[in-house]
């Protein structure tokens, strides 16, 4: 049973990681909490449902449309909501409130246009999982775990070696200095939202296949994704992914002994421990006292 629970933890962690990666990427440059990220995931999942199940597009095409629409929604939210607020020099708290409002708005939007009932994407035939020694896992789950890990590596490489990644890190590190050397922070913000929300769209497709789609799924995902990125270090994308796997494993190993109704309690106890003793997270850098 231990190995099965270990694998269950990896699967859960991979799903949290898909959420946390995009969230951390956006946070690292813009420095405010974009809770509406969860709403973008939910909306992208509904786009998949719209184009695949309702309009009958081929799955790969619907998936691409859903992923791209994630990116478009993210940029649109930044352009129409956050940017005007930034121009008025709104504090991060105000932008946080705005992001929660956008999340609720997107959920209500899903509710109005797609209805309250749970939708499933019947693309993959659900068969019995593959038995690998003591463990049962489906091929979709292997794909989810693999893509989470690849995402971790790709994002790490992107931030480290590409010009855009370097520019993002520069803005993340010190916005004023970055602007002095000619990096437009607004442009970098737009790119952060585009890229982070592209990951949200990708997450949406996989989560839609693995779980089901419901209007309020964004909030549930966001809570775990946010917790994961705090644990991992909210300014580090790799940290977010790492935190997600840690969270998934801790939850599942924890309910080996505890009733599974304690799952959320386990997650939040870990969150508190990190907030108290290592608020910068696993990979975060401790800010020096100035």
């Amino acid at each position: 049973m231990f190995y099965q629970i270990l694998v269950n933890g990896l699967i859960a962690g991979a799903i949290y990681a898909l959420v946390a990666a995009g969230f951390s990427l956006i946070y690292s440059t813009v420095k405010f909490v974009h809770f509406a990220h969860g709403g973008v995931i939910a909306l992208s999942a509904y786009m998949l449902y719209l184009f695949y199940s309702m309009l009958g597009l081929p799955f790969w095409l619907a998936a691409i449309v859903a992923i791209l629409s994630g990116s478009i929604f993210g940029v649109a939210i930044d352009y129409f909501i956050y940017r005007p607020l930034r121009k008025r020099r709104a504090s991060p708290t105000i932008i946080l409130v705005a992001s929660v409002s956008v999340l609720l708005l997107l959920e209500s939007f899903n509710l109005i246009f797609f209805g309250a009932d749970v939708k499933s994407i019947n693309f993959l035939d659900i068969g019995t999982g593959l038995t690998l020694g003591p463990v049962i896992i489906t091929s979709l789950q292997i794909f989810i775990v693999a893509s989470s890990i690849s995402l971790l590596i790709l994002l790490f490489a992107f931030m480290k070696y590409t010009k855009m990644g370097k520019a993002m890190r520069a803005v993340a590190d010190n916005k004023s200095v970055a602007e002095i050397v000619g990096i437009s922070s607004e442009r970098i913000y737009t790119w952060s939202f585009a890229l982070g929300s592209l990951i949200a769209g990708f997450a949406a497709v996989l989560i839609a296949l693995e779980q089901n789609i419901e209007p309020t799924m964004g909030t549930a995902l966001m809570i775990k994704g946010f917790t994961a990125s705090i644990i991992g270090g909210v300014e580090s994308v790799a940290g977010g992914v790492l935190g997600a796997f840690l969270l998934g494993l801790a939850e599942n190993l924890g309910i080996w002994w505890l009733p599974s109704s304690y799952k959320d309690a386990i997650a939040f106890v870990i969150l508190f421990i990190f907030l108290l003793f290592r608020p910068e997270g696993i990979l975060g850098v401790k800010k020096s006292n100035k």
């Binding site: 099965q4 629970i5 269950n8 699967i11 779980q211 309910i255 080996w256 599974s260």
Partner: peptide, 8 residues
């Protein structure tokens, strides 16, 4: 949405 450990 995740019952796998309960199933185990």
């Amino acid at each position: 949405t995740d019952f796998r450990s309960e199933i185990a």
